[in-house]
Design a protein around this nucleic acid. Structure first.
Lengths: 352, 352
DNA sequence: TTGTATGCGTTATCAT
DNA sequence: ATGATAACGCATACAA
């Protein structure tokens, strides 16, 4: 019978008691301004705030309303990796811009060892945005919740998605690169082309694999350009970088430059990879772009500042997040393909 | 009397009914493995999952338990800005690494026009991490909730904080810069030194202002070094950049280089500012470091790749987030000052 | 080991 | 305009 909690946290009921009104009235003050006089409402709000009550408890409120005003974003890798990835950051910028506008909160989810641990939290958000290729099990589990979902850079049947035309963008930049030299010997530094945690070259079997992953689309785009120029790329000229980081990219780049292929065109599936390739080339005594042309994909901010500056494909990454969030919040669930732009800079201009 | 929801979402009770056990047993299967046989538990978990029930509803569970396993992170600016800031990202990397380990979820808060809109959500997290100088009202409101709080790069009485010794780090790099030239004429490109949304120079009054903001500490550190070298910096040689972005930094840098001061040492309070200053100097025909030495603060990844590479202060930013999160989750609330390191690169080495 | 009952804080319905 | 009350889904004390 003792009072366990000396100071029990103030709740809506407590506020109602202290102000001598009913709980319904306080609730209405917060949620339905039209249900009470303006005077009373303002008095309640200011008094409540003075008492230290700043709004209904989220857990209770969303339990009751079946809505939390929280949006979940599922990042396709660990949070730690995602925050280090410029692309993910730009995308999150776009999402958050819209969420701020709509007064929604952002709950971040991630792929982890134990993906059941967070499944409890999956019940909270009113909707989800998936960024990148998610774990299929997790993806299905969340979609099965029946809440609105949008994917970014990840295509799944019946789920609205936001992305770019990776194949044609890849073709575009490859065409440009090939046009810059007389005799092109092409190598590709791709991203996550095969399932492995290590840098590795592809084999013929890998090429035959069908997949809708964006990396595959980019690969097809490169092939389109190569074929159109009567060139070929054997699988040994294609590297798969497991993570979009400088470290892994350098390993791949070093292998490419040390190989007997002597490529003079390196098509990279990300700017991070391309920048690492430039730096690797330079440290091996190669001149970019005179000895080797290197192009990227994404147009991250470093691309412009690098030396030589990087030729790449500009994709409106923040816009992706913005569009996805808007689709979710305005319940306008449809597919959206954003435009890309070829940005020619020094790394592909040997004649200057 | 009609059935409004054709398919009511499955809940714990529903699972219990379908499996022919009590709700308590299902609950125990998820929360207290020791309360039932291993066999039964596994059967319940797998059956539940098969039925599409993947864990207790977060709202209901945290309402009941008074705990959500969600950690709130308050970013000192808009989310959009924070995600564009390399420092904030590194810090978030550190936080998320620990949260993943402890199976916690991350709910992001931000300073916005209407900071009451998210106050409802503030009731959910079990604890908060504040990054950077928060709005004092919001800060106090959250602290008043009585939940564990930790600040990063923000010092407030009685709240445990994680940071660096900004003053001595600033002094260290300033001493180095000054030692590199014969006759130093110093200009400072500071960050948020005064309350303004525009780039502006300081006045004597601004200098007299006391403040614990980290920018002020860095300023004091610069002064320490200047004084020790029998130099002076008039307030007109100090610029305040309102946001840590290239755009604003370039405006300030241009003013600094165009002024009659002709500074040959530029002390920048961030790498973003310093890199913008380098690029501005170069576009104005100045050679860095021969004509002017430029140093930064932070050691973001671009610092190493810039040309010339940037001399700066390396602060373990991810570590800050890691430490703060650990303090929160291990309930080990204390203060922590992390080490910094001077990183000398080309931008301050005119003799090479 | 399992089942029953209560309340967590809120909101919406309904009556006043 | 306001007040009483049931229900949201769950976890725990307690009884069996």
């Amino acid at each position: 019978m003792e009072d366990k909690r000396i100071t029990k946290r103030l709740n809506l009921k407590g506020v109602a008691e202290k102000l001598g009104v009913s709980t319904a009235t306080v609730s209405n003050a917060f949620n339905r301004p039209d249900q009470l006089s303006k005077n009373l409402r303002e008095k309640i709000l200011s008094e409540a705030s003075r008492l230290g009550y700043h709004g209904p408890n989220l857990a209770a409120r969303s339990l009751r309303r079946g809505r939390s005003d929280v949006i979940g974003v599922m990042l396709s890798d660990s949070l730690t990796y995602s925050f280090s990835d410029p692309m993910a950051n730009q995308m999150l910028q776009g999402i958050s811009e819209v969420l701020m506008e709509y007064n929604k909160q952002l709950l971040l989810f991630y792929e982890g060892k134990d993906n059941t641990a967070q499944s409890s939290a999956e019940s909270l958000p009113d909707g989800f945005i998936f960024y990148g290729s998610s774990n299929l099990e997790t993806f299905k589990r969340i979609v099965a919740l029946g809440k609105p979902c949008v994917t970014i850079d990840y295509v799944q049947d019946k789920i609205p998605s936001v992305g770019i035309d990776d194949r044609s963008a890849a073709k575009k930049i490859a065409m440009h690169a090939i046009s810059q030299v007389n005799h092109g010997t092409v190598a590709i530094l791709g991203m996550k082309l095969v399932v492995s945690d290590r840098v590795c070259r592809l084999t013929q079997d890998d090429l035959d694999e069908k997949s809708v992953e964006i990396s595959r689309q980019r690969l097809l785009g490169y092939f389109d350009a190569v074929t159109e120029n009567d060139l070929t790329i054997p699988p040994e000229s294609i590297w798969s970088v497991p993570f979009n980081t400088e470290k892994y990219a350098k390993i791949a780049a070093k292998e490419a430059f040390s190989s007997s292929l002597h490529p003079n065109i390196i098509l990279c599936m990300s700017d991070v990879i391309a920048l690492a390739a430039i730096s690797t080339a330079q440290s091996m005594g190669l001149n970019v772009p005179k000895d080797v042309i290197i192009v990227g994909f994404d147009d991250i901010s470093e691309a412009k500042h690098a030396s030589p500056s990087l030729t790449t494909v500009c994709q409106q990454n923040a816009q992706k997040g913005k569009v996805a969030a808007k689709m979710l919040l305005e319940n306008n669930l449809t597919n959206c393909i954003l435009e890309t732009k070829l940005v020619v800079r020094q790394s592909s201009s040997p004649t200057n």
